[in-house]
Design a protein around this nucleic acid. Structure first.
Lengths: 248, 248
DNA sequence: TTAAAATGCGCAAAAAAGTGCAAAATAAAG
DNA sequence: CTTTATTTTGCACTTTTTTGCGCATTTTAA
């Protein structure tokens, strides 16, 4: 076996299993462990793998490992964990934009099999990394501020969908004024999403409760569930529960 | 056995078995190993095979190896820098997928004012961070492997565009077989993009030159410009220039 | 802390590759 | 058909690359 060939074999093994042992490789290829170590050192030097004691790790595995650790203690992550419980196999899900929704996308359990419609670039990036999730992107002009699709073409596309559930990341929620926002185009998209879904779930950190913005998106009565990081019996949530919305 | 004949035999052997040993070839053809080595050197110089200690490897087998290194990133940046010079204010640009295209999106000069149509999530994320660029995302199902939009709806949308220029990140380019790929759905998108654009630019690192994949995308004659990290007078590029394609 | 496992380093043998040159084969010219 | 020029090939030799082993050192895990 050629040296180059051997190194390619090793690289494939690493990328396939996310990690390899020097001893296993040595046995499989029938060369000394020294040779394997030298190969791993070379591959690591050109940045193709991460060397470790006893073997090596794939690059992608290493990076994803780090990312998961950093954001684990976030309010939004807490909200996302509550939200994923509403998703079941086979569902068709409309997903809006915002960082909270992106957290939701990261929090999906691996074995889930569902179809996600979204116009949010950051959320789509996360959904597509899920092993089984189907992702349909709603295309049109992309808004620079919110990084979601806006425009008539998108609204038309959304109207063709009949989703089981819709997750909206929101900017302002008030017991009287309901759901409001400051971007006209984004509001049109959110309204379309609410119309296109049987159940509407609003995700928000508690700071945005009892705040108002300038453009009306929906009445509280149009929302089915509100999810925040607070415990369900927090007094701040009382007026929303009274309006007939379920709190998680 | 003629020299030419012998080299073609070697090339067939390489592509068939993905690797050859100098010693085996020498024995099979009944010439000295020196001669085989000289043949391998010539074939490697024109980019048809990859030389290695003890023999040679096929290009297709080898590419996966080179593509994810630290040096390939520099190459792609170099390619991106060449490509941005083709973009001018007011242009309508169709942009495909792939890491090279993503580099292009990162390399855009800040004051540029242009409209980008794309179905690539990573590229769109970069385009949208540009201060003035207009971004239109072509929506439909997102392919897990390539992270670009695929499907009939997307093809229909692309057909409605009449772009000034189209940038394609490509997987395999051969002087005879032209542009090829291994994903049927992605091929359909690329074909649509080529049809929808007045000028077609192929971006690729040199390792992918002289390689073939299974599904035809376009003839060389359909390409206007090829951009690689190599200097324009490199011998590997000669057959492409002869086919009438401009090289940068 | 301690024992086992893994690693790095120097070294030597084996394999392969590069080099210069002359013989052989092929092509071109007279 | 012969002669000359060019290319191709093989051989002897040197240089480089690759590989495995012994041994001191470091890392890991109990």
């Amino acid at each position: 076996m050629l040296k180059r060939e051997r190194q390619e074999y090793i690289l494939r093994e690493v990328n396939l299993h996310n990690r390899v042992l020097t001893s296993d490789l040595s046995e499989a290829i029938n060369v000394s462990e020294d040779t394997i170590r030298r190969d791993l050192a070379e591959l690591a030097e050109t940045g193709k793998i991460i060397k470790a004691h006893g073997g090596a790790l794939s690059k992608s595995f290493h990076t994803s490992f780090q990312i998961n650790g950093v954001y684990s203690h976030d309010k939004k992550k807490c909200i996302a964990r509550k939200a994923v419980n509403l998703i079941h196999d086979g569902m068709f899900i409309l997903s809006g934009g915002g960082t909270t929704i992106t957290e939701l996308a990261k929090a999906l359990p691996d074995q889930l099999q569902a179809t996600f419609f979204t116009g949010s670039l950051p959320a789509a990036i996360e959904y597509i990394q899920h092993p089984t999730a189907e992702v349909i992107f709603i295309g049109d002009r992309i808004s620079k501020n919110s990084r979601i699709t806006i425009g008539g073409d998108a609204i038309q596309k959304i109207a063709q969908i009949n989703a089981d559930i819709c997750f909206l990341g929101i900017n302002a929620l008030d017991p009287e004024l309901g759901l409001t926002d400051n971007d006209w185009e984004v509001v049109q998209i959110k309204k379309a999403m609410i119309r296109a879904s049987r159940k509407v779930v609003a995700l928000t950190i508690s700071e945005k409760l009892n705040t108002q913005q300038k453009i009306k998106v929906a009445d509280l009565s149009e929302l089915d569930i509100i999810i925040t990081e607070l415990p369900p019996d927090d007094p701040i949530l009382e007026p929303f529960r009274k309006a007939g919305v379920q709190i998680l």
